[in-house]
Write a protein that binds this DNA or RNA. Sequence first.
DNA 1: CCGATCGTTCGACATCTGTCGAACTATGAG
DNA 2: CTCATAGTTCGACAGATGTCGAACGATCGG
Lengths: 102, 102
Amino acid sequence: MEQYPSPDMADVQLVTVLSALADPIRLDIVRALADGRPHPKTAEVWHFDVQKSTLSHHFRILREAGLTRTIVDGRSHAIQLRRAELDERFPGLIASLVDATA
Amino acid sequence: MEQYPSPDMADVQLVTVLSALADPIRLDIVRALADGRPHPKTAEVWHFDVQKSTLSHHFRILREAGLTRTIVDGRSHAIQLRRAELDERFPGLIASLVDATA
DNA sequence: CCGATCGTTCGACATCTGTCGAACTATGAG
DNA sequence: CTCATAGTTCGACAGATGTCGAACGATCGG
């Protein structure tokens, strides 16, 4: 299917990742996703005060930057941090985001 | 004098730091500054292909985000990463930037 | 003092970015 | 099949951002 493609981690640039993280909503998402497990994209689950189209936009930025992958199951989608790959490509980066008091 | 003020590190937001890092030139600067020592602002030293006014703009963003401090000595200015403070406020973050193969 | 140098500031401009609402797609329920 | 639901895509728009060049301010050398 390859419906929602993420880039190869080897091609992911640090500055692209940092740009993706440089937004309050996306940073919150990534920090919440740091457990490495899939989380539903459902807008109501995320308490953000934006429309679902905006949230969808943020999910896309994260995926295209290489931070996340999308798991499709019927009409429900989940998003998952590519934790292991990221830890290998950018050691310590995700950990430092999680540790930090925002 | 307080001529070029940097914010208190306690007031520095993670997302602000990430926004400052989310630019190719500024990321390069920070990585070069990671040794913690002062570096001259001299445009020729930095090989970037932008005008000095643009470089000055980037230095300002970095300082206002809390990443650097400016040291004035006569008419020559130096810029220094606030390494120790940053390491305490955001453990591992700077290190992960330096480690990474951009 | 005078002129040169280092760096900042300002206004202008094009581009990028976050946001919305409406339309669309695909899946699942009855 | 029909309708509802989950999420995406699209066009529009306002505001932020990176860049330049010109003008400015401050300092140093002669």
